[in-house]
Amino acid sequence: MADKFEVLEENLEQFIETVRRLGIIVSDFPPQGQNVLNQKVNSMITTLKEIENCKSAFADVQIPLEVFDYIDAGKNPQLYTKDCIEKALMKNELVKGKTDVYRKFRKELMSQLTTIFPEQISEYKKIREES
């Protein structure tokens, strides 16, 4: 069975092509073109029906709404993917930076506390090792 996305793509291509050809016929209508026009109108409707039939197969497909903003602005939707990955990487780096800084801070705090409260810290370390 062909991939459902492929089927939909084919149907959409067919529909666009039919509409394009309709445009060509209508823009310079030939004297005996009425039958061709009628058949084109009906083939357009048939393709629309096929697209409608595909609808049920896409109930589980989720699309991020933000991608529509890119398409509506006349931008390449791949830019959305790119922006998402870049954002994820940036946040990942940010969090890693924070954890590294906290780790360094903890180390420094422990060393300073050890010099000032050596007994308490040794006891603390002992408890932590046990748990």
Partner: peptide, 19 residues
């Protein structure tokens, strides 16, 4: 969605010539 009948298609009659 159903194809148009011949009667309905009468509404799509065009005059020959460019637009």
């Amino acid at each position: 969605i159903q194809p148009l009948s011949s009667g309905m298609l009468m509404a799509f009659r065009l005059h020959p010539g460019p637009i």
